[in-house]
Every structure is written in structure tokens, then in C-alpha cells.
């Protein structure tokens, strides 16, 4: 039995469809109910929905053998897992954004609001820039507008939210897409099953290109 952690939300539904197309369907998952775990015994697969940022924790700790999560999560938490495949969906980018008229002249400590503390720290320490990190848990865009921070480090998908709030992307940090990850120990004991799933998914990634 392979345990699969899926990220709750639109991305997770897309990912499930990819798994189903590979022959790992589990129809009960689409029923509208409050169940959290869905199993298809015959196919040897069990799915569960978790908060997207928790997927890597479930996999690293072995509660899930494999899972799908964004590259942003992997770079932020650096879990000790195998990253087997780029699924090429859920594409967006990690970026620095700020008010249109803001210009960083490097003379002051830069105030950075973000959910991704480690990503922001690493990025700015790579540029030797002195920063003051402000950790927020949501509605990051509001921070520069209210003067809480100079810039934000956040995920940008289409840029609509930024535009509507008079903000713009200043720098791109890295591109993001969904990745298939696997627990290292599980991979040793369920090598063939996990390889098979990864291969099937890789085929679909190719077809989608």
C-alpha cells in the first residue's frame, strides 16, 4: 500500500487527476463529504488531503510514502526527502515585490515581509543585503501598502493581486512548480511501486508539454 499526501485545493485536485490517469484512481475521493482518507485497495493506494505546506512534513516523517508539493515549500523547509519528478503544473514564481514607486537604494536596512523566512534570508544573504524580516502568515501584499515593510517576498502567479494593489514584481527569485517527493526509507522498501508511479507520471508530464 502506497500512502500519498495530496495538497488540499486546486493543485491537489489536478494532481489527483494525474494519478487517476495513471491507473491509480479512487473514485470516492471526488464525493463531496468530510472523509480525510481515501483508499483503493485493489490498486494499492491510499490518498489523504493535507495543508499544502504540511505535505513535506508527512513525507519526511514517513506518514506518507510519497506526496506532491510546490518547490517553494521544499526550498523553505529543506526536508530530507527524494525529489523524484517535476510535475510541471502549479507553475508560478517566488518574487520580490513592492510599491511601484519604491526604489531600493541600498542605504538602509531593507524591511521584508514574508511567509517564506528562510527563502528570503538566503536570497538576501546571497546578495550581502542587510534585512529586517517580518514574518506574516497571510495577506502579505498589505504590508508595503501600510508601510509595515519596504518589500515582500511571496509567490506570484498571474500578478493580478499585485496590480490591483499598485504593487509590482521587483526581482524574481526562482520559478516554482509542483514536485513529486518520496520518503527516503519508504523508497527503499517500496522501490518498485514508487518507481512505477513516478514513471507513469513522467509520461504524463511529457504529454502535457
Amino acid at each position: 500500500m502506497i500512502n500519498v499526501a495530496l495538497p488540499k485545493g486546486r493543485l491537489g485536485e489536478k494532481v489527483y487527476k494525474m494519478f487517476a490517469l495513471c491507473g491509480y484512481e479512487c473514485p470516492s475521493i471526488l464525493e463531496n463529504n468530510r472523509k480525510l482518507i481515501f483508499e483503493n485497495e485493489e490498486k494499492g493506494v491510499r490518498y489523504f488531503w493535507v495543508k499544502p505546506s504540511d505535505v513535506s512534513i508527512y513525507v519526511e516523517r514517513g506518514a506518507a510514502d510519497i506526496g506532491v508539493c510546490g518547490k517553494d515549500i521544499l526550498l523553505e523547509y529543506e526536508p530530507d526527502v527524494y525529489e523524484l519528478l517535476d510535475l510541471n503544473i502549479g507553475k508560478c514564481r517566488m518574487a520580490v515585490a513592492g510599491k511601484k514607486d519604491f526604489y531600493d537604494d541600498n542605504t538602509q536596512t531593507l524591511k521584508v515581509a514574508t511567509k517564506f523566512v528562510n527563502v528570503a534570508k538566503k536570497y538576501y544573504s546571497g546578495k550581502c543585503r542587510d534585512i529586517d524580516i517580518i514574518k506574516l502568515n497571510g495577506s502579505i501584499e498589505i504590508a508595503p501598502i501600510l508601510g509595515l515593510s519596504d518589500v515582500i517576498v511571496d509567490i506570484v502567479e498571474t500578478g493580478t493581486t499585485l496590480k490591483e494593489n499598485d504593487l509590482e514584481v521587483k526581482e524574481e527569485i526562482f520559478p516554482i512548480s509542483a514536485r513529486l517527493i518520496a520518503n527516503k526509507a519508504s523508497f527503499k522498501f517500496k522501490t518498485a511501486e514508487i518507481e512505477k508511479i513516478a514513471e507513469f507520471l513522467a509520461e504524463q508530464v511529457k504529454d502535457n508539454d
Binding site: 519526511e60 514517513g62 527516503k184 526509507a185 519508504s186 527503499k188 522498501f189
Partner: peptide, 8 residues
């Protein structure tokens, strides 16, 4: 690795 232990 040991079966049942999720790390090395």
C-alpha cells in the same frame, strides 16, 4: 534502513 522506521 529498517522497515517501520521512517529515517536512516
Amino acid at each position: 534502513f529498517l522497515s517501520g522506521v521512517s529515517e536512516c
